[in-house]
């Protein structure tokens, strides 16, 4: 296993001081990139905790100061001026946006989204890797044709498929149900392609050896191939979970107005309203934060499986 972590690059033979300076500069550079990537989210979080006029008054303010949760409105219900709760770089964090969110079924939407995301991820891990493996390793007539067929399904703008898909879902009696969301999404071309490319890049000798030992294809697949595929499966799990979590159009097509089955993206779209111009930013941003955080967490947990050497550690030793 790759457990020999060293603080400096090991390859350079130059004087240690230079190495140190270079690595510190590199680290600073990385921190800078990381900041660029994260800053928009920092602004999102900060503004989700502001009263509506305060967002206009000081949109860039990111330092929270007491009083916590100031009233955004005067007694007659009118908004207080922005200067009352934010100025310069500081603001008084308010929970108004979050209160509005939780007044709107967000709990239910979150549960629905989580349920669908887990199911779809599990199904895709299974079916995408089965299909990817078949396309990469198994010889059967039509293998290539099937691959191009699957690839081809990604190449047409989804909007022209909406009406035919809706009619098919209706004929199958799948409208307004989770089944209608899950079944069409249980495999995806992207995932199959990902797994196929991955399986092609790992050497076939191990499987051949197992075959000679008499193991059947199922056994080889589940016992030998899948464990080797941890990095690819990790990537697939991340993408599937995230894709389902943020999925808007497929879910909308199936669920129509059935609000009890709604998911977070649909709820967020409702909050955005019909004209994006007049939306309540604090509520919308609060919804975005709630939608994004679980995904960040999922990613953080899963990225640990990207560890060099996992695929071969148990095999070549």
């Amino acid at each position: 296993m790759a457990s020999t972590s060293i603080a400096v690059p090991q390859s350079n033979q130059g004087p240690k001081l230079v190495v140190r300076i270079v690595s510190i500069a590199a680290l600073l550079f990385l921190v800078l990139i990381a900041l660029v990537q994260i800053m928009p989210f920092v602004f999102t979080v900060a503004n989700s905790f502001k009263c509506l006029p305060a967002i206009q008054e000081a949109p860039m303010a990111i330092i929270p100061l007491p009083p916590i949760d100031p009233a955004c409105r005067a007694e007659n219900g009118n908004m207080l001026p922005g200067s009352a709760t934010a100025s310069g770089a500081t603001f008084n964090p308010s929970f108004e946006g979050y209160r509005a969110i939780f007044g709107r079924d967000f709990g239910r939407w979150t549960l629905n989204t989580a349920f669908l995301s887990v199911i779809v991820t599990v199904l895709r891990l299974g079916f995408d890797s089965l299909a990817g493996y078949a396309l990469a390793r198994l010889k059967f007539p039509g293998n290539r044709a099937v691959f191009f067929l699957i690839l081809g399904t990604m190449m047409i703008p989804g909007v022209v498929l909406l009406i035919p898909r809706f009619i098919i879902l209706k004929q199958l009696g799948m409208l307004n149900s989770f089944t209608g969301i899950i079944i069409p999404l249980m495999v995806d071309a992207f995932g199959i392609f990902l797994m196929k490319q991955f399986f092609e890049s790992i050497p076939g000798e191990i499987e051949e050896a197992a075959q000679v030992d008499g193991a059947d294809r199922f056994t080889i697949f589940f016992r030998i191939v899948l464990p080797m595929a941890t990095p690819a499966l990790t990537a697939l799990a991340i993408f599937s979970f995230q894709g389902m979590w943020n999925n808007f159009l497929d879910v909308l097509l199936v669920l129509q107005g059935n609000a009890s089955l709604w998911t977070l993206p649909l709820g967020l779209a409702l909050i955005r309203g019909t004209s994006g111009e007049t939306l309540d930013w604090n509520i919308f941003l609060a919804g975005s934060v709630i939608t994004t955080l679980p995904l960040a967490l999922v990613f953080f947990v899963f990225q640990r499986y990207f560890v060099e050497g996992v695929s071969y550690s148990g095999l070549k030793g």
Binding site: F127, D128, L130, A131, Y133, A134, L135, L138, V146, L149, I150, I183, P184, M186, V187, I192, F221
Partner: peptide, 8 residues
């Protein structure tokens, strides 16, 4: 292996 994907 490929059947579920192809059918869907």
């Amino acid at each position: 292996f490929i059947a579920p994907a192809v059918i869907v």
